[in-house]
Design a protein around this nucleic acid. Structure first.
Length: 466
RNA sequence: GGUGCCAUCGCCAAGUGGUAAGGCCGCAGCCUGCAAAGCUGCUAUCCCCAGUUCAAAUCUGGGUGGCACCUCCA
């Protein structure tokens, strides 16, 4: 397969360090608030990547961290008079529940910063020993960017002189304005951690490097992980700094391939905390089925910026509906998984840097071909078998079509309403039996008023939520 | 200001040298008591200009217009 490597800014053949095995590390959430659509996008993109890697026969070790040490967490804990664990457990739990609704599989490893402090201390010490880090008078430990000749090679940034000057004034303890904190000393009574460097908190960038060393890397490997992923905004400074720490504090570079997913905008506007237009996942999930959101957020290439709006979401649902309608036509049939050309083509499309558009086009064409044949008289045993295999493959590889089709089409409808619709359909069936079409059509209008579609089939009348 | 990305049908969106995938919407038809669903058919020469080439949406140069990062952020 080929992947776009954002460090080399080109698409290239993916070759893991150890044949048949892939290590994947993705920057996960800082659990101080509810997850928004951007978190969902990132989790979905790398969920898809891990599925595609597995489908190619790789044994994947997927790690996504939980950042549970952070100033924002600490501030919130102080504000609400809670422990940081109370705060982080709450949002971690919410994150897991919401991701599950999106069909995002749990990574193999989910390291937490609080459980990786030893690895962080070890890395800081190594960097101090190597003279890649230094202590300041007030007890902070900084990474010395001037000691790393490869610094900024990942993000391809050029240090700006005027920028340098501005920042020198604001942080006089640093040798170089680009230097970043590995350990921040804290003198007051707020929440701190005891380290060999005194009381304080680890720097933001440190945990990823430390966790990767602890959980994924082999000392003799050239790269700590095969693939490192995260949101596009993390390229600088977060990933640049991570890469520097690992390069200077260990015997290897951080990642062989870097992957960054594009941003989610809302109605053309950047979504951000400061603009106050964050679309929280929990709110979206109240209105939309998690699988519809999954389909929608994955329907555009992972590197593009994504413009979230309800109109496109509705279009995405219609496209997902097509999978479910075909599923419905084959409902209750069993099958043995078998390989088909379609499956091969689908995987080939995804192997091209996760070309989701080509994949969805293949799926739509497969659906149309199947419907076309099913519309003609005959039993079509072979086609049905193949189609069921194809649908199962789509479910496994992309996570689309995971539910019972009747559930899918009745998302968000109360049991009470369902009963009312059922009663109206029964009345209408009776009217139809005696060919009282005026009454039948009037009843249909009543049913449609519930915001559903009604469809008459040889097996009875069915409804779908629009 | 620095760095980088993008510009394809009404909308969403693939395609990186050989003559424009797919979805939504729309129109016509088949099917249907009528619908819905499904199926069939129809709908773009790729922001502008110049260049390279037998051949360019796809390469080069110049415009124009969007956007992102450079500060915590997926």
């Amino acid at each position: 397969m080929t992947l776009y490597d954002s460090a080399k800014k080109t698409k290239r053949e993916f070759i893991p360090q150890v044949e048949g095995k892939v290590s994947l590390y993705v920057c996960g959430p800082t659990v101080y608030d509810d997850a928004h659509l951007g978190h969902a996008k990132s989790a979905l993109v790398f969920d898809l990547l891990s599925r595609v890697l597995s489908a190619n026969g790789y044994e994947v070790t997927y790690a996504r961290n939980i950042t549970d040490i952070d100033d924002k967490i600490i501030n919130k804990a102080v504000e609400q008079n809670k422990t940081i664990k109370e705060i982080t457990d709450f949002y971690t739990d919410a994150y897991h529940k919401e991701m599950a609704l999106l069909g995002v599989k749990r990574p193999d490893i989910e390291p937490k910063a609080t459980e990786s402090l030893d690895a962080m201390y070890a890395l800081i010490q190594k960097l101090l020993d190597n003279k890649h880090a230094y202590k300041t008078d007030d007890g902070d430990v900084y990474f010395d960017t001037s000691s790393d000749s490869d610094y900024l090679t990942l993000s391809k940034r050029v240090q700006d002189e005027s920028e340098k000057l501005q920042r020198v004034e604001s942080s006089s303890h640093k040798k170089n304005p680009a230097d970043f904190a590995l350990w921040k000393s804290v003198k007051d009574d707020s929440i701190t951690f005891d380290s060999p460097f005194g009381k304080g908190r680890p720097g933001w960038h440190l945990e990823c490097s430390a966790m990767i060393e602890k959980h994924l890397s082999k000392p003799e490997a050239k790269f700590a992980v095969d693939i490192h992923g995260g949101g596009a905004d993390l390229l600088f400074p977060h990933h640049e700094n991570e890469a520097a720490q690992t390069r200077c504090g260990t015997n290897h570079a951080l990642a062989a391939y870097w992957m960054h997913n594009g941003f989610v905008n809302i109605d053309g506007q950047k979504m951000s905390k400061s603009l106050g237009n964050s679309f929280f996942l929990k709110d979206a999930l109240k209105i939309y089925d998690g699988e519809v959101l999954r389909f929608y957020l994955l329907s555009t290439h992972y590197r593009s910026n994504f413009n979230f709006n309800e109109e496109d979401l509705a279009t995405a649902k219609k496209r997902l509906d097509k999978i479910y309608r075909l599923k419905k036509r084959l409902f209750d049939m069993t099958h043995e998984d078998e390989k088909t050309d379609f499956q091969e083509e689908l995987l080939a499309a995804l192997n091209d840097d996760l070309n989701i558009s080509a994949s969805l086009a293949l799926i739509d064409e497969m659906i149309t071909r199947a419907n076309e044949t099913l519309d003609t008289p005959g039993k079509h045993k072979e086609l049905k078998r193949e189609t069921l295999s194809n649908l199962a493959y789509i479910k496994k590889l992309l996570g689309f079509g995971v539910k019972n089709p009747y559930e899918h089409f009745q998302f968000g409808v109360d049991e009470e309403i369902k009963e009312e619709i059922k009663a109206l359909i029964q009345k209408r069936d009776e009217a139809k039996k005696v060919k009282d079409f005026a009454a039948s059509d009037a009843l249909r209008d009543e049913i449609l008023a519930y915001g559903v579609n009604l469809m008459d089939t040889p097996h009875g009348s069915f409804w779908e939520k629009i």
